[in-house]
């Protein structure tokens, strides 16, 4: 599903953000990527959605080789991936329904299908009642749930989450993690970048730890140990 072979990314000459990464993630896996700030976690996610080009190495996502992918092919490729940000990135001038529907409109889904799919997503995240609310009227947890619904509404094979609980209190953090686990149980590959030691240790999933741009550990049912 996701394959990185000897991937290096340097923003400036001689200073790699990630170096010589080798990583295989299978279909349906749930993987935590942990590490200190500046360890290369976010760079890794950006490489996976082709927001960044690797300086060296080969990346294959969803069966598609990103190194040789043409600019024209990027939109279609990204439709197979859902993305959740720490700061939610909802459109402030659109309500909950419109924010979720937006993701479907962008890929030109027929209107009838949008009208069926969006309410289903709203029920899944437990915000059916608040479909007319604007982001500023929602709590952080609710906003992240909307962002999650937006990422999932197009049925992606892979869900990438960059610090999804970074701005949330423990209760909301757990709610989001439970949702991500439910999503994973339906067969979606989930990759979560996080700092949340408690959640990582409690969920007993695969943990890939990065330090200074390199993988320092990769364990199935691992724990988040290295924090300094």
């Amino acid at each position: 599903m996701i394959s990185l072979e000897h991937v290096t990314k340097s923003y400036t000459v001689g200073v790699p953000a990630v170096k010589d990464l080798n990583l295989q993630i299978e279909k349906g896996e749930f993987v935590f990527v942990v590490g200190n700030s500046g360890s290369g976690k976010s760079t890794l996610l950006k490489l996976l959605i082709k927001e960044l080009e690797p300086t060296e190495g080969r990346i294959v996502v969803n069966g598609q080789e990103l190194n040789t992918m043409k600019r024209k092919q990027i939109p279609k490729f990204r439709r197979g991936i859902g993305f959740v940000y720490q700061d939610f990135r909802l459109l402030k001038d659109r309500n909950v329904y419109e924010n979720i529907a937006f993701a479907q409109r962008v890929i030109q889904t027929p209107g009838k299908q949008i009208k069926r799919r969006v309410p289903a997503m709203l029920s899944m995240i437990g915000l059916a009642e608040k479909y007319r609310s604007f982001p500023k009227e929602l709590s952080g947890g609710e906003q992240q749930r909307v962002a999650l619904a937006r990422a999932l509404v197009n049925d992606p094979n892979i869900l990438l989450a960059d610090e999804p609980t970074g701005n949330l209190d423990p209760k909301n953090s757990w709610d989001i993690m439970k949702l991500l686990e439910e999503v994973n149980e339906t067969g979606t590959t989930v990759v979560v970048v996080t700092h949340n030691r408690e959640i990582v240790n409690a969920m007993k999933k695969r943990v890939v730890a990065l330090d200074d741009g390199a993988i320092i550990s990769d364990e199935k049912k691992g724990v988040y140990e290295n924090e300094n």
Partner: peptide, 16 residues
């Protein structure tokens, strides 16, 4: 800019 960035990451084409 943010709206455009979100659109691009969701998979919107340049024409759209």
């Amino acid at each position: 800019k943010e709206e455009i960035a979100i659109m691009k990451l969701i998979g919107a084409t340049d024409v759209f």
